[in-house]
């Protein structure tokens, strides 16, 4: 009887990786001299993690579903940032007033333009560059690296080689003050946008038929085709959406750094690869947890031991892979 009960018990999600976030945050607490500093670093880490998640989520789905490692993903991040810059700079009058509505009136079209352009470029990239090399990993690496170089040089041609300064909208500057604790407004926005993207992806993946197709396709795309679905169309949709999300992430990252340059996508790709490997290739939930862990570790270690900050995330990846070689949430594959 108890065996039947055990068999019928629906297993809940694996909560251990989720618990790592509070565990790391609490472990850092005694090492950091003051509570306000800890709160500031924690929020900064979560915000950074959310932005990395936005940029990485598309790439992990593309890899999981299409078995394509797209090194040109960073180009979509950069292009998103530059397109938004092209919209925001002429609207500087709107972004630099203290009116939230005027700020939003400038920011929303910039985000939409960035997502539309990167989504359209992603669609073209999949059709022209990726499609001929499905299933050929070495060629994928070479051709997507080539795509990244071409994109960077095209950015030089269109926007010039110089770093462009990009100020945050006036209402997103400064901090919320709670006693001794200061929390940057922009970081709060980054957390909200990151959570919204995660919630949207979660709902699409778990509550819609397209989501069901994507989840099944990540496991076994051949079987999905054998059921009568044209998985290639799903591939195209996911690649386009992933590129658009990279564009959104590029806008968020550019406003966070307040500068835009042609190498910014490539620079952040290292963190993105760490995140998707930690999370489990193809796992959106794993990508989310991995991004938050990377954000937190980068901020805590950057504060406590700046000299090893660069290597801290690689160390985190090594430790997690020693514990779970397939990542935090391995995707079942046939």
């Amino acid at each position: 009887m108890s065996q039947t009960k055990d068999a019928l018990r629906v297993p809940g999600p694996d909560k251990i990786p989720l618990a790592l976030i509070p565990v790391i945050a609490l472990a850092a607490l005694p090492l950091i001299p003051s509570l306000p500093t800890w709160v500031t670093l924690t929020v900064a880490g979560l915000a950074m993690g959310m932005m990395i998640f936005i940029m990485a989520s598309g790439l992990t789905l593309v890899f999981g579903l299409m078995d394509v490692m797209n090194f040109a993903h960073g180009a979509f991040i950069t292009i998103g940032a530059f397109v938004a810059t092209s919209v925001l700079l002429p609207l500087a009058g709107w972004t630099q007033t203290d009116s939230l509505w005027m700020n939003l009136a400038a920011l929303l079209p910039a985000i939409l333009a960035a997502m539309a352009v990167t989504g359209a470029l992603g669609l073209a990239f999949e059709r022209v560059i990726i499609k001929p090399v499905y299933g050929q990993h070495l060629k994928q690496i070479l051709i997507t690296m080539g795509g990244l170089i071409v994109a960077e040089q095209s950015i030089h041609v269109i926007w010039g080689p110089d770093i462009i300064a990009l100020s945050k909208p006036a209402t997103l500057r400064g901090s919320f003050i709670f006693g001794d604790i200061a929390i940057e407004k922009y970081r709060v926005l980054a957390v909200i946008v990151g959570l919204a993207v995660f919630a949207a992806m979660f709902l699409v993946l778990n509550r819609t038929r397209v989501g069901l197709l994507i989840r099944a396709g990540v496991e076994d795309s051949e079987m999905v085709e054998s059921l009568g679905y044209r998985i290639r169309r799903v591939f195209i949709g996911v690649f386009t959406a992933g590129s658009a999300l990279a564009g959104l992430g590029g806008v968020m990252w550019a406003l966070y750094q307040e500068t835009v340059n042609s190498a910014m996508g490539m620079q952040v790709m290292i963190l993105i690869f760490i995140v998707i490997i930690i999370g489990g290739l193809g796992s959106v939930g794993g990508c989310f947890i991995g991004a938050l862990l990377v954000g937190l570790v980068a901020n805590y270690v950057g504060f406590l031991a700046p000299k090893i900050a660069l290597g801290s995330n690689i160390l985190l990846m090594v430790l997690i892979l020693l514990w779970r070689p397939q990542g935090l949430y391995p995707v079942a594959k046939r």
Binding site: L213, R215, D220, E222, M223, V224, S226, L227, A332
Partner: peptide, 30 residues
């Protein structure tokens, strides 16, 4: 393959091809 399946051919591969991460209900819904 999708066009063949849409003609009314069901396929059970040797590996069974079930989607392990999907529930029984989701496998059948799909």
């Amino acid at each position: 393959t999708p066009a063949v399946a849409q003609l009314g051919i069901g396929y059970v591969p040797e590996s069974m091809g079930i989607f392990a991460g999907l529930t029984v209900r989701e496998n059948l819904t799909l």
